[in-house]
């Protein structure tokens, strides 16, 4: 039994690398959501502090920023040519990491 020859001219990526990377971005966004939900719980816990509400608003903005970053990257991954999608730009990665750092700073502000 011989295997049929591939008909499609475009190169198939056997490792499904762009898909795996897309899912990795999704998982990371989900982790970010969990952190934001925990921030919401912290605010509901003591709801009388104005500083806490400001910190929670910052958390929400950071979550939206991370969502936007992930969305942009996922669109870029989907639109790769035959040579594969472009590598992640250092600035893009740095902004994602800085979002995480800022989330930690907001968390520290919420706790104190």
């Amino acid at each position: 039994m011989n295997t049929p020859a591939p008909k499609e001219p475009e190169r198939r990526d056997p490792g499904l690398q762009p898909e795996r990377t897309r899912l990795a971005w999704r998982r990371t966004t989900l982790s970010c959501t969990v952190a934001a939900v925990l921030a919401a719980k912290a605010v509901l816990h003591d709801r009388d502090s104005a500083a806490g509400i400001v910190a929670f608003a910052c958390c929400c903005v950071l979550w939206l920023a991370f969502l936007g970053l992930a969305h942009r990257r996922i669109r870029a991954l989907a639109g790769g040519g035959p040579a594969g999608p472009a590598a992640l730009a250092p600035r893009h990665g740095t902004v994602a990491a800085l979002c995480t750092v800022a989330l930690a700073v907001c968390a520290a502000a919420l706790i104190f």
């Binding site: 990371t28 982790s31 952190a35 995480t100 989330l103």
Partner: peptide, 17 residues
Amino acid sequence: FLAWLRTALALIGGGFA
């Protein structure tokens, strides 16, 4: 890189928790 970022987010979530 994303896996490390998730680790960082999990640690931050742990801080909240």
